[in-house]
Structure formats: C-alpha cells, structure tokens
C-alpha cells in the first residue's frame, strides 16, 4: 500500500462527474480530501491524499488523466527557495499541519511536503517571500 498527496485540476466542463466515487469504487483507492475549490463553470482544484496499491494508484491516476483531470504530486506544486531561507521560523508559526518545522538541533527550517495541506498560510507569513504554491494555475 502507498499513500501520497496529489493536486488535481478539473476542467470547467467536468463538474458533473463523480471522479472521486470512481477512484474508490473502481480502483479501490482510499481518498482523503485535504482541500477543495469548486466553482461552477470554472476550473476546480482538489488536494487529495490517495492510498492504495501501486497498481491501483497508477490506474486511478491514468483514469483521471484520460478524463482531462490533471494529477500531480503535491510536492511538485510547492517551491521553497531554500537557498535564500534564513530560518527565522515565521512560517512555522502558522503551519498547523506541521509540514514546516524548526530542526530542534540546528534550528534550520525543515519542510515535509507529505504533511502539507496547501493551506497557503506560509506564503504571506514568510518575510522573504520564499514560498510559491501552484494550487490553482
């Protein structure tokens, strides 16, 4: 079994299709919705944690792509300019998911994308503006 977080983007015309139902029913994938933005007639976004066998996940993702739903690993959607980071800690103050934490030994910032729920609070919290999250476009 594998567990991984993905960002899904739906084309405007796909709002009436039960994709998550098919992921569960046809591919035996456990889904956990971490964040959703659905606007009738517009592109929608969904952050999902998918859990299943390697084959099932592969097939489920292929099914989404066949239906024009893009599906990319969450960590590819977040960029943190680590080189410029001064490890001040401001982002850890707002990251209640625990994805951004100070290393208790060297006090440098650690980012664990697997814990990120794309709340985006870190983006304005960083005084050096080092986070970019590509959730919508």
């Amino acid at each position: 079994m594998q567990k991984k977080r993905y960002v899904l983007k739906f084309p405007p015309q796909s709002g009436d299709q039960p994709f998550s139902y098919h992921l569960v029913k046809d591919f035996d994938i456990r889904i956990n919705i971490l964040r959703a933005e659905v606007w009738p007639g517009k592109t929608g976004s969904l952050v999902l944690e998918l859990e299943g066998t390697s084959d099932n996940l592969k097939q489920g993702i292929a099914y989404l792509k066949e239906n024009q739903v893009s599906c990319e690993p969450l960590n590819k959607k977040i960029t943190w300019n680590e080189k410029r980071c001064i490890s001040c800690g401001n982002c850890t103050a707002v990251c209640f998911a625990g994805a951004l934490q100070m290393d208790p030994v060297n006090w440098e910032l650690q980012f664990d994308s697997e814990k990120c729920i794309v709340c985006e609070l870190c983006v304005p919290a960083c005084p050096l503006n080092l986070f970019k999250i590509d959730f919508r476009e």
Binding site: T92, A93, W107
Partner: peptide, 21 residues
C-alpha cells in the same frame, strides 16, 4: 521545546528570529 502553557492553555511556539544565523 515547541509548546508553552499560558493560563492553563497549551500553545504551540515558533521563533521569529534566526537562531541558526
């Protein structure tokens, strides 16, 4: 330690100045 207690409530802490620097 990452947590303090204020008026009986446990609160998560974060620095805003850089100890590593």
């Amino acid at each position: 330690s990452g947590e303090i207690e204020v008026q009986g409530k446990k609160i998560r802490t974060a620095p805003v100045s850089s100890l590593s620097k």
